[in-house]
Amino acid sequence: MTGPGGPPPDPDPPPVAPVAPVSPVAPVSPVVVPPAAPGVFDLVARGARVGVDAAGLLAAEVADATVRIARAVLPPAVTTGPLEFVGDAVDRRRTEARRREAASADATADAVQAVVRRVVELVIDQIDMSALVRRIPIDEVVDQIDIDAIAERIDVDAVVARVDIDAIVARIDVAGIVASMDLGAIVRDSTTGLAGETLDGVRVQLMGLDLLLARLVDRITFRRTPRDTAVHGYDVAGPEIRTPRGLR
């Protein structure tokens, strides 16, 4: 498996533009590549330019070979001065010719790309895409897709691991939710509900015994009037906690 960061560097990079082992004495004229998109005419012209450059390089090759032969054949005293002059000229030309050759090749490639792009656009314009799509058997294509196999290849754990749960939680307004809940009422209802119900059951029994005994005694003592159990002014829901004198 390759780690993150893209493919490993190519251990064997392709060679740069092949350089002709030649020193040209080529006909040189400055060519200005037009910035506009090249067309078919440009393609032809630049193809011809490449041919001319190749011919120039060939001529330079011949000149270079001639110089080497002259060096080998003629006596050094005679040949040193002129041949060195010619050699320097050949070296200068060689550099210029290589640059021009590369520029011509690039320009030609651009022209080829532009022409091909134009042709493809024309072809695409001619195609009725909707008719083409209509002819595609969508159902058959879909039938051939194995969704389960695709799903099996999905690493759910990796997907989940990339989800920033903390960021999601941070966006939830927990304080607002808690504030909207009446926790006090919930706690009060649950506790008084359970404990209160049980206690009230016992209290009702005691209250019944109170009344039973009182009635029994009243009957034994021949009391005619019922007991007076009311307490005037007592408020069941009123305040109970006595306020100390110092706090009044």
Binding site: D200, R203, V204, L206, M207, L209, D210, L211, L213, A214, R227, T229, A230, V231, Y234, D235, V236
Partner: peptide, 14 residues
Amino acid sequence: RAQALQGHRAGIVS
């Protein structure tokens, strides 16, 4: 009945 007797004088058993 218990609700009605709230605030009344309690008996001896309670």
